[in-house]
């Protein structure tokens, strides 16, 4: 497959270039994440009004929903990175996918545990075998499988490819998993945010939520870039630019 891509795309393939670009972007994302997360959490936990039914317990939404969104976005990102890595033989894409996996797994764990804490007062159970919960649990298993596969290969390039294949298979399966468990049992409420519909909450509730989601994305980007840069250094430790980098900085 040979599809012509714009120039920046090929520059991304160069480890040094992407290392530098990420180094430039990282502080901005870190700052944005800090501002957004602090604003969102203070607003959401202290100033947003309580819910008419759930009272204050609904406030866990400000942690729960963004991490659930991130958990899924992260998997999509890994699948896209996997395709790019396989089709254009781009090492950096594989490294991004590998660095993203543990972050996605952590987000899934956060979503599951905050969901359990939220579920107890509202549904009356820590855990129910409901569609959303079950498919998130399966997502966690997929993440764990991918991470295990990365570490099972002593040769990193092979591990990258193997994990990409598994990610792609997993991404094909996610709609099926969702569909199957949805037909099987349903309790969880529908999505709070959709692109097409107006949010079913007043602004003083959803604006902090939106801020939190954006903050999570910035935080995710920040951590992802940090992890990617470390992995880049590790894999390229013999190449000229890393040596130069290490000798230049005292």
């Amino acid at each position: 497959m040979n599809i012509k891509m714009p120039k920046w795309f090929y520059q991304l393939a160069s480890p040094k270039w992407s290392y530098d670009i990420m180094g430039m972007l990282m502080p901005w994302f870190g700052l944005a994440a800090l501002l957004l997360l602090v604003t969102g959490i203070v607003w959401g936990l202290m100033f947003a009004p309580p819910d008419y039914q759930q009272g204050n317990s609904y406030r866990i939404i400000y942690i729960h929903v963004p991490s659930a969104i991130l958990a899924q976005s992260c998997f999509m990102l890994m699948a896209v990175a996997g395709i790019i890595g396989m089709v254009w033989k781009m090492k950096v894409a594989h490294i991004v996918a590998k660095s993203a996996a543990p972050i996605g797994a952590s987000m899934t764990i956060i979503a599951l545990s905050t969901g359990a804490i939220w579920g107890k007062p509202t549904w009356g159970a820590w855990w129910v075998w409901d569609a959303r919960l079950t498919s998130m649990l399966i997502l966690l298993f997929l993440y764990l499988g991918i991470i295990a596969l990365y570490s099972a290969f002593s040769n990193k390039a092979s591990g990258d490819q193997a994990a990409s294949i598994l990610t792609l298979v997993g991404v094909v399966n996610i709609p099926i998993i969702k569909y199957s468990v949805e037909w099987w049992n349903t309790l969880h409420q529908p999505a709070s945010f959709t692109l097409t519909k107006k949010p079913a909450m007043p602004p003083e509730m959803w604006v902090p939520l939106l801020i939190m989601v954006l903050g999570y994305y910035c935080f995710f980007a920040y951590v992802l870039m940090a992890r990617t840069r470390i992995e880049l250094l590790e894999r390229e430790h013999k190449s000229g630019w890393v040596t130069a980098l290490l000798t230049d900085t005292p």
């Binding site: 009004p49 309580p50 819910d51 008419y52 039914q53 759930q54 609904y58 939404i61 509202t122 549904w123 009356g124 129910v128 309790l187 409420q189 529908p190 999505a191 709070s192 079913a200 909450m201 007043p202 003083e204 509730m205």
Partner: peptide
Amino acid sequence: LAKHDENYMPP
């Protein structure tokens, strides 16, 4: 099981 919907609002 109580099904709570996606609507949240102040009391």
